[in-house]
Design a protein around this nucleic acid. Structure first.
Lengths: 178, 178
DNA sequence: ACCTGAACACCGTTCAAGT
DNA sequence: ACCTGAACACCGTTCAAGT
């Protein structure tokens, strides 16, 4: 006994994420992930509970990539910066990103970021009994657009058009807030 | 030869839809759909090309359920009625509805409805070079919220809270438009 | 024309066995 | 402690055969 581990949870998740980024979620099978790591499929089960846990882990991995919001800007500059970060993350991980619509913010990383958003809304003067609702509505609009982009609903529109759409969306959401 | 058909495409799609509504998309397997129809899995292939075609067909089926917008109301009443119809449809078909984010409007039914939305925006006074963009942004916000509801992102919120959120979202979107 | 039986490659997952 | 081999139930799909 006492055998040096050849892989760990992070390695499994990152291999799965790389696979999803290149070839879509459908390419993420236990066998394919294992092959990426030069290991048999059964070896993965020491590091992840099952396939659902693998997908959960991949989502968490994407969430930890979100940069924390920059300090020392106005609330509106911070929100805009964060929105662009989220969109870039979606474009990096088009296969996994739509899964964000399936679960509440849960990792400490994403709860932290949500709190930063709450703070920005308070600074913007949103009444405190409206702050949480506003966050749900704005995040819905943002995710709805960005997931439409990466999942295929906007596949007939050029990147230039979608860039323009996104800027306009941010303008309109900012108008909401004040 | 010359044998009376026991099933047709619509029957297959509706059986699959019923299965998805009760037990989720994961329960939609060729074998389960076939069992629902008292037929072997291979019999399905005479009526659908493959599993992707089955899913496409299920989405189309959901789209044909959207009631056409009522005549003789103001543009804002029409938009609100349509938004509520869409949300009800999502709640009826929580398993399939998120697939709407994956494809552009394509069926004649949904193109028709999109044109009605364009007309409402024109009546509302949106400059004509902005109408299509506005439709993309508003539909993104609506779908983002409704898919969050049915896919699980808002699972920690009560129906009452979500009803209130939706009304507020419609108010804010209406404010966009004029 | 429509459905079935047999068959295949692939998938997730388990369990006991090896180092 | 960590990985493997063998095995199982299930999945989508094909093809030739039956009515």
């Amino acid at each position: 006994m006492g055998r040096p581990p050849r892989i760990d949870r992070i390695a499994v998740l990152d291999a799965a994420l790389a696979l999803a980024d290149e070839a879509g979620l459908g390419a993420v099978t236990m066998q394919a992930v294992a092959a990426e790591l030069d290991v048999t499929p059964m070896a993965l089960y020491r590091h992840i509970a099952n396939k659902a846990d693998l997908l959960d882990g991949m989502v968490e991995r994407v969430l930890t990539e979100f940069p924390p919001p920059p300090e020392g800007l106005t609330w509106s500059e911070r929100l805009s910066t964060m929105a662009h970060s989220i969109r870039r993350s979606a474009h990096r991980h088009p296969g996994v990103f739509p899964l964000l619509l399936q679960r509440p913010a849960a990792t400490s990383q994403s709860l932290q970021i949500r709190d930063d958003v709450y703070r920005a809304y308070e600074e913007a003067g949103i009444p405190s009994d409206r702050v949480h609702q506003t966050e749900r509505l704005v995040s819905s609009a943002l995710l709805g657009f960005v997931v439409s982009e990466v999942a295929g609903r906007f596949q007939n529109h050029s990147p230039q058009v979608l860039d323009g759409d996104f800027e306009r969306l941010l303008q309109l959401l900012a108008r909401f807030i004040e």
